[in-house]
């Protein structure tokens, strides 16, 4: 599977006059990749993810999703992408199932397929019994699960997730990893940020490390970490670049 799903070319985002949040960042995510994006707080991870999803305007560079430019064909890009922000702001006045139907309508998911997927993932994440309740009554973890089900509903080619494991119980986190592998085996790709290096090390086949907006390491997980743990490589790389 060497089809490019996401291609970021020389992405640069400047806040204010001269604060470079992302500086000339380039990377490629192929079909089947589970690509971990790691870095310190404020390194530029979320900015990159938001630029990829077309939510954030950037100053230079280009982003292609499934061959479409996010600047020129945003709707085509978004049709094959699912995005879960770090703190998904779901509509609290809707019930879980109303929210999923809304997402299904927007992405044009057929009714039969929709109910099949809702049933499958709601059972998997043990949330089926709560889908009739208002989202406002959900816990943070339940909201996260609902956002994940919404993201999976249209079988996206690319999933962009910002800290997807935060708030999930151990069982849900385990199931999510399983789902990641399953959809990547079917030709999709995952690009996600995380602070949990252990998860990144075990789950991702590729890793990118970002510091102060610059990509300082990326590639196959084995190549990036060598014989050491990802944690020690991460700390070492950061220290070297801080000097």
């Amino acid at each position: 599977m060497n089809q490019k799903i996401l291609e970021i070319q020389h992405l640069t985002k400047i806040y204010g006059k001269d604060k470079k949040a992302v500086d000339d960042l380039s990377l490629c995510v192929y079909a089947g990749d589970i690509y971990g994006f790691i870095g310190q707080n404020g390194a530029g991870k979320t900015t990159t993810l938001r630029a990829v999803t077309g939510v954030l305007e950037f100053d230079a560079g280009e982003i292609f999703i499934d061959g479409h430019s996010i600047r020129k064909e945003p709707v085509a890009c978004k049709s094959v992408t699912a995005y879960i922000p770090d703190n998904p702001d779901l509509y609290e006045f809707l019930t879980g199932v109303q929210y999923l139907n809304y997402i299904g309508d927007i992405f044009g998911v057929k009714k039969s397929l929709r109910s099949e997927r809702i049933q499958k993932y709601a059972d998997m994440f043990r949330i089926a019994g709560d889908l009739g309740s208002l989202i406002g009554s959900f816990s943070h973890g339940m909201k996260q699960k609902l956002a994940i089900i919404g993201a999976l509903l249209h079988a996206p080619k690319l999933m962009v997730l910002d800290e997807p494991f935060v708030g999930l119980d151990p069982e849900a986190a385990f199931k999510l990893k399983q789902v990641f592998r399953e959809i990547c085996d079917n030709g999709s790709a995952i690009f996600f940020s995380t602070h949990v290096l252990d998860v990144a090390e075990k789950l991702c086949n590729k890793i990118a490390i970002i510091q102060s907006g610059k990509l300082i390491a990326d590639g196959e997980t084995e190549t990036v970490r060598g014989n050491e743990s990802l944690e020690s490589v991460f700390l070492e790389v950061l220290e070297n670049h801080a000097r």
């Binding site: 077309g54 702001d89 927007i106």
Partner: peptide, 14 residues
């Protein structure tokens, strides 16, 4: 708006 990220990441035109 608070739902800006969510809405703009959907396949709908501006």
């Amino acid at each position: 708006l608070k739902d800006y990220d969510m809405v703009l990441s959907l396949p709908v035109s501006k």
